[in-house]
Design a protein around this nucleic acid. Structure first.
Lengths: 278, 278
DNA sequence: GCCGATCGTTCAGCATACTGAACATATGGC
DNA sequence: GCCATATGTTCAGTATGCTGAACGATCGGC
């Protein structure tokens, strides 16, 4: 493991036994970055460092199954992605329960509540409850944000066992910042995670967007190896008053309790991991 | 054609120049159907009629790029689908504008409003505005419903030129019904589409769900070859009073007007199709 | 506790998907 | 209006991804 040999540099074409699929993934990523704009085979080949004709073959296959659509002579993301994305979200039990539970939160139902899952050092946002606040502070579903600066991310990271956390932070020195208040160093992050563990919830005080504060709690995964989830409440800093915040924190803890696997919560920990679902 | 030689029967592996990608699409579809439940290589191979080892190779490649996730020894849809699905929705201008416009509708903002796009004879639902009605009547984003029974679908179909409509209905004899009131024949559908064109909007009167009525209007696509969109308002039949419905219809027409491409709406039709976007 | 069935994984040989160059087409500049 | 550039598409040869059978692991049943 000390042997840090550089195998390849471009996309992870490396050792896949189905390189066309790996490359298709790279193409989808590239199209997602240039959001909305169509890209032709030549441009994609240039960006990904792959042969032009291979790209064309894969894009045509992707177009046939609907994952991309043709815009004139180029390609853009296709509508089947919405279908499959919806199917994925529907398959995550927490998402369904999240929507139900959010509506019956005392104070939290008025605010913007979000559900996300940890993936590496990023959070993928899976669900959003829109409160009655007119301002749309939140990011769209499917968006990814750094776990190191978000309330959801810090709540999730704080729940990892130390070895796992070290593995994810391995090789990181400085953290890319989003605002002036963003934690910029790994040491600062570790110190904040200690506070999160003791406090029981995470705070993002204008670390992602200026003027906006978030509170986050961890929600454990239900299957082995499934990264922890987290829920957060987002509000304008002016609304985060001393009397309102405690109510929101209580709602978050209630939400986390309800979204924790009932089977796992009901039975005392210590039994074997055999859990029958559905 | 009397020669009934069976070339291939299972999935359309036929003539793709990137068969691994085509098969990956079939795998994703299969996983979407068995929603939530994980499926192993053997089961997928059986369902799709493809070699087991090929499936395993493709699944591992899909897992590496995050389109599927491993559940124990099996596979299920992965979280990158949520990311790409969100990116697709973000790339559709109508979706963004839909959310903004829905909130300022006079009567419609109270109800459930949906945006969908026509694809063959099905509608893919792209966006949903949740009104203040407590009942969640609507389908999730990304879900597909028959265009022949939904208000969105009939509004979209009615806007097609006759040749296009004939092509889509070619080979259909009886329509699969969803409720007792569903239109069951192609002739019945054609007659209803005539009414839709004259009336200016489509009605789904308990054709998809009993006790629920929908009104739909067509929204033209903005790029050549892009299937028509449609918007609908859904409500319990008891709420569809004689004084409320006209207000909702007016809101739908207003919405359609605002979601029609501004560039195309501003200039008189008749100019060439060269439209500069962004 | 043994056995039969089924599963996921491995591996070598062959068919075939990938590649690079050439073609045809569309575009912008002087 | 012409040329220079860049783009999407085609095609034959070859490297390589796909396949079927064998392996080892796991589960359920008489």
């Amino acid at each position: 493991m000390t042997d840090s040999v550089r195998i390849r540099d471009e996309i992870a074409d490396s050792e896949s036994l189905a390189p066309a699929v790996t490359r298709a993934g790279a193409i989808l990523d590239a199209l997602a970055e240039s959001s909305g704009e169509a890209a032709g085979p030549s441009e994609l080949a240039r960006r990904l460092g792959l042969p032009k004709s291979s790209i064309a073959n894969i894009c045509n296959a992707l177009a046939e199954i609907g994952l991309v659509r043709r815009i004139g002579t180029g390609f853009a993301l296709g509508r089947k992605l919405a279908e499959l994305g919806g199917a994925y979200l529907a398959s995550v039990d927490q998402v369904q329960e999240f929507y139900e539970e959010c509506r019956i939160l005392r104070a939290g139902s008025e605010e913007t509540v979000q559900l996300a899952i940890l993936d590496g050092l990023e959070m993928t946002y899976l669900a959003r409850h829109d409160g009655r606040q007119p301002v749309r502070l939140t990011s769209q579903i499917g968006r990814r944000l750094p776990a190191t600066h978000t309330a959801t991310g810090k709540a999730a990271l704080a729940s990892l066992d130390p070895a796992d956390l070290d593995r994810r932070l391995d090789g990181m020195d400085a953290l890319p910042t989003m605002t002036e208040k963003s934690i910029a160093t790994v040491e600062g992050l570790r110190a904040d995670l200690d506070v999160v563990r003791e406090r029981g919830y995470a705070i993002d005080d204008e670390e992602t967007v200026e003027g906006v504060v978030c509170f986050g709690v961890m929600i454990p995964g239900r299957r082995p190896g499934e990264g922890p989830y987290a829920a957060s409440i987002t509000l304008l800093k002016a609304r985060a008053t001393d009397e309102r915040v405690p109510l929101l924190i209580a709602d978050l803890h209630r939400l986390a309790e309800r979204l924790t696997d009932p089977l796992r919560a009901d039975q005392r920990p210590g039994r074997d991991g055999s859990v029958i679902r559905r």
